[in-house]
Lab assay of single mutants.
Amino acid sequence: MEVRTIKVFTTVDNINLHTQVVDMSMTYGQQFGPTYLDGADVTKIKPHNSHEGKTFYVLPNDDTLRVEAFEYYHTTDPSFLGRYMSALNHTKKWKYPQVNGLTSIKWADNNCYLATALLTLQQIELKFNPPALQDAYYRARAGEAANFCALILAYCNKTVGELGDVRETMSYLFQHANLDSCKRVLNVVCKTCGQQQTTLKGVEAVMYMGTLSYEQFKKGVQIPCTCGKQATKYLVQQESPFVMMSAPPAQYELKHGTFTCASEYTGNYQCGHYKHITSKETLYCIDGALLTKSSEYKGPITDVFYKENSYTTTIK
């Protein structure tokens, strides 16, 4: 009895394709271990004539594949690729409408935090270190965002349907971005203890939790000093293409032309909904596939993004 075979390709990165001759009487799992086709788990399936010449994702289970996976995804987590594939199996079914010149995501599976993050990423200057993220990001900007969303979920250790947080998501993504040249110098002034300067680099240099107003941050924000008295913390120097200011959701007025974009969060910790506000020729609110415009805006804002380049204080 002759062994019926077909020729397929296996890959971990969709760049390096490895030619395989597979036995049609055995499952993919018996031949390769966990195997995925377009995100779908085909591990328990036997090869079919229609699979001839198709590319299958496999887990990096030998040295060659491990090197290829690390170079593309910059992670050695053995569960990463499987999590990416199972997320992709959902995100490829989502709709990605162009809204006001940006790629958004039609609401499904509690994905409003991903839509808000995706919209924000198209408006701030950011370059990702893992080629996987950078490639998928370019495709997302062009309207094909399924891979990018699935990668975000995998890097953030999230599953489809789980509630997510924009600030946490951005923080994970910033860790995989090139923020080497970003720098922030802060000064804390206390009447009792004097003053202390701190220099922050990388992710810490672009994120701040405690106030939404970048102007206020430049002037000074009140913080408790270690001595128990009130101290003032203010920005001395900022070198970065953008800054992200966050605070627990509270009524906040966004003035046209003073910011790049913002995240609105309605609801409580267990259950809520994100919308995205962007400042173009007027203010726009993007909620999944829905767009509304207004000249002014007041609502429960939790993150505001500002364009920056270089700032030095005039406070002496």
Rank of each mutant, 00 (worst) to 15 (best):
T199L: 07
K233V: 14
E215P: 02
K218F: 02
Q123F: 04
I124D: 01
M207R: 01
L163I: 06
N61K: 12
T192M: 09
M209K: 10
Y113W: 15
K92G: 07
F217H: 06
P34K: 15
E296G: 08
Y137K: 02
T313A: 13
M170S: 04
K280W: 04
E52S: 13
L291P: 01
K219D: 08
F128W: 14
S279N: 01
E2W: 10
K298Y: 10
T19S: 12
G101E: 11
N111D: 00
L163G: 07
T10I: 10
V12E: 08
S213E: 05
E52F: 11
T278M: 12
K233W: 07
I286G: 01
R66A: 13
G143I: 03
G143N: 05
P248H: 04
Q222L: 13
D41W: 03
D135S: 11
T27N: 11
L153R: 04
L179W: 05
T313H: 14
E2A: 11
C193E: 04
V22I: 10
E204F: 06
S240V: 04
N129D: 08
T19C: 06
R141M: 12
T43K: 09
K183E: 05
L151E: 06
F305L: 00
C182Y: 09
V304N: 00
N61R: 11
E239Y: 07
T266K: 07
M207T: 11
R141W: 08
I223L: 10
T159Y: 10
N100Y: 10
E162P: 00
K46D: 13
C149A: 08
F56W: 07
S79I: 08
A115K: 02
N49S: 13
T226I: 13
V21E: 14
S181L: 09
L118R: 01
D180E: 14
S295G: 10
Y269H: 12
I223Y: 10
N14Y: 08
Q196H: 15
S181N: 15
L114H: 03
E125V: 03
I286E: 04
N16L: 12
Q30W: 11
T169M: 08
S79W: 12
Y84I: 06
K44G: 12
A115R: 05
V67K: 14
P241M: 01
F174C: 06
T198S: 10
A40F: 13
P47V: 09
K218V: 04
G272I: 00
Q20Y: 09
Y57G: 06
P224W: 10
Y252L: 08
K93P: 08
S86I: 12
F80L: 06
M209D: 04
T43G: 13
W94N: 04
Y274S: 00
L151N: 04
L283G: 01
S310D: 12
C285P: 07
Y138H: 15
T199Y: 09
T35R: 00
G82I: 12
S246R: 08
Y28L: 06
L88A: 00
N100V: 13
N187F: 03
T278V: 11
T76H: 14
A117G: 00
S310N: 10
S86L: 09
L81Y: 14
D38W: 10
C156D: 06
Y155Q: 02
T266F: 06
K233D: 03
V22L: 11
L173V: 05
C271S: 11
Y96S: 07
H74F: 00
Y311T: 08
E239V: 13
A289T: 07
M207Y: 08
C156F: 05
T313N: 15
E253M: 11
A247D: 07
T258Y: 08
L200D: 11
G210N: 01
K201M: 15
T266Y: 08
C190Q: 03
R66Q: 12
Q238V: 01
R139M: 14
K127W: 04
Q134M: 09
H18G: 08
T278K: 05
T19H: 11
I124K: 02
T313I: 13
T19L: 12
T278I: 10
D41Q: 08
